[in-house]
Nucleic acid binder design. Structure first.
Lengths: 226, 226
DNA sequence: GTATGATTCAAACGCTCGTTTAAATGCAGT
DNA sequence: ACTGCATTTAAACGAGCGTTTGAATCATAC
């Protein structure tokens, strides 16, 4: 094991190269489909260095998530804090809440130069890949952000039942996660997709806002207003 | 190799047991995470019988998809044919098109007794798992349904640019796929989810309709109307 | 320049993987 | 009862897996 996780040391760049290589490989082939030898070959480091620097393959996987998720959720909380400070106690608009929550991941997904896009693809597919050890870890990492943003959404949409809001947040996360990680899937299905990728964010935002503010479904209208 | 793929023969029930067992295991652990020995143990058959009946692990995976996807898309096309026959050439309502496209998978997902729910979880996670050999296969299997339904959506929403409709179909598929395959993910994130699962379909439909009919995003309004 | 401790390295560990083999078994039709 | 063929079975194959080992190498402080 290395002494400390310090960036200004000898093996620092080895560890970083492993993280970048494995991030891409995990996104491309999944956790089980990525072998240690694939990682160390791509990173151009010795096979044993993954275990030396991270302890195990599982621990490496978690570290890949930790460094990106921490940044992502920090940005989300910063945005929410800023908006709430500027609103003088009045409720935010739904579009503001959406921008705060989905803006950071969408911008990260648009960043193809620093691995952001790669990580968002990985995150998208990990939601549906229920590896026990990463689910618990994500629940912890997400807890504060989800709590803060659901409260903000309750206030932004006082007429929508809270359970409905939670569901719609769920639906929105699906649409976003899928839009990011599965873009080429649709290209395969439809063929023509020579469209400007910079338009993804406004397109998606408009769609999400429409869904979020949609009329309540019939079976709920009678017993709504919880 | 078995002579023919006939249900009324000696090994028919062995093949069916393998399909059911592997469907569940693939959904639970993914393709790479599921081993031949896990499958044959769960199906209570001999290890070699997978290769005997299906040829290889990959071929088994494809057969798991083929039997369910064929049924799913058959239902979708039937629904569309029926609705178009009853509409006397006038365009369908957006809600009808959505019901025809997303009704069958949602009902399949609600069926926990015949493996439908299991398969929809598997399908959801396979969208984001880009195993080359299954992507091409899905593209073929989906081609007709997507073509027919996009045309129906164009007619149902004459004011929305076609590119926008394709995008929104994409977003909707994400929301649905995620809602089906990732339900427990949200339960982990929020804690409380003792809600009636039968309400998923109306909730999701209301959300999708809202998104589908949302106002166009700002950057598009100027150059819209393609 | 030598001691010290972090890092890299080649090699090997035991294990599980998907697949193949050849013999055993079941089940017609005659 | 026997033949022919589909199916099942137990055993083994080579390959790749994640991890561990102990020695070689490097950087730094004296």
């Amino acid at each position: 094991m290395p002494q400390i996780a310090d960036d200004s040391r000898a093996g620092a760049d080895t560890a970083a190269r492993i993280l970048d290589a494995s991030e891409w490989l995990f996104a491309e082939h999944g956790f089980e489909g990525t072998s240690m030898r694939m990682i160390t070959t791509r990173a151009a480091v010795n096979l044993a260095s993954v275990n030396y620097h991270f302890g195990s393959k599982e621990a490496l996987f978690q570290e890949v998530f930790r460094r990106r998720l921490a940044e992502l959720n920090r940005l989300r909380l910063e945005a929410l804090n800023r908006m709430e400070a500027e609103s003088d106690g009045t409720a935010l608009k739904p579009s503001q809440v959406l921008e705060g929550f989905f803006g950071p991941p969408l911008e990260m997904a648009a960043d193809t130069e620093h691995g952001g896009h790669t990580f968002m693809r990985l995150l998208g597919r990990t939601y549906t890949e229920p590896a026990e050890f990463v689910r618990k870890f994500m629940a912890i990492e997400y807890a504060e952000v989800v709590e803060r943003y659901t409260v903000a959404l309750y206030a932004a949409l006082p007429d929508v039942p809270k359970a409905e809001i939670v569901w719609r947040l769920h639906f929105m996360m699906g649409a976003v996660s899928y839009a990011i990680s599965g873009i080429d899937a649709l290209a395969l299905l439809t063929g023509h997709f020579d469209d400007d990728p910079a338009l993804l964010k406004p397109r998606l935002t408009a769609f999400l806002l429409g869904g979020l503010r949609a009329p309540l479904p019939e079976p709920l209208k009678v017993s709504a207003g919880k």
